[in-house]
Write a protein that binds this DNA or RNA. Structure first.
Lengths: 133, 133
DNA sequence: CAGCATCCAGCTTGATACTG
DNA sequence: CAGTATCAAGCTGGATGCTG
């Protein structure tokens, strides 16, 4: 459309992650944060219970998973389905919006995992050229 | 392929972000971290100098931008081109690998910016149902 | 301009203990 | 099981000052 496609074709949307105070920046941080992205990807295969998620995401603490799920639920990306049974059973699943986000994330993650050898090689090269510090 | 497409079709790659100690996890954190993603996206339109980047990414400090660029350079996503002039001039640009990553990121960012109204609406709903805390 | 070194406030995080 | 509450520790990141 724009022949002079310079470096920054501005969006039509009134939101920009480049602006410090834009809510899109905070939202991006929720979904790309330390646990947000992993949580979304973990839920891609279907709904999971709290402790299933916890086991799946190696290293996440109870507290952080809880916090992360609350954020994602608030942003409308995850649905929380609590059954009032005893013992309690709570299932988490993606909303349609969450699923779309997770797909983008999955694409990124898959790509990255597929190119890790390149990354590792680059690191070795980088570290070697300055091994003497 | 697999008719019982359960929740986790394992990758063919030996890397998984779900494992705490996998280098792919750390790399993912570099590119989705607070400044990594923004830096990669900012460089999508072409090379930029240090202070150009700093101005473009609202809120980043000198220190964090410097640190971020080093990480991205080490991971082989960004190229640093320093001209030995006075005053010094250093240009940063994406490597082919970095460009591919940036494209994934851009897709995510664009999608999210385009759906921010939904996110904001979801937040309002969430907050309202528990306004009395 | 393009950084590095240092300092340190405060936010994030992980452990632990507790509740329904 | 599915969390919440609390607390200490450590890392993040901003401010400042300096270098080439």
């Amino acid at each position: 459309m724009d022949s002079t496609q310079e470096r920054t074709e501005e969006q039509n949307y009134p939101y920009s992650v480049f602006a410090k105070a834009c809510p899109s920046r905070a939202t991006l941080e929720h979904i790309t944060g330390r646990w947000g992205g992993l949580t979304l990807c973990a839920l891609q295969g279907g709904s999971l219970r709290f402790n299933e998620l916890r086991r799946r995401i190696d290293g996440v603490s109870e507290k952080m998973l809880s916090q992360t799920l609350h954020q994602l639920e608030r942003d409308g990306l995850v649905l929380r389905d609590a059954q009032p049974t005893n013992p309690p059973r709570v299932d988490y699943e993606l909303t349609p919006l969450g699923r779309a986000v997770a797909e983008h994330l999955k694409g990124l993650v898959d790509f990255m995992e597929s190119r890790m050898d390149d990354v590792l090689a680059a690191r070795t090269r980088y570290d070697e050229t300055r091994d003497g510090r």
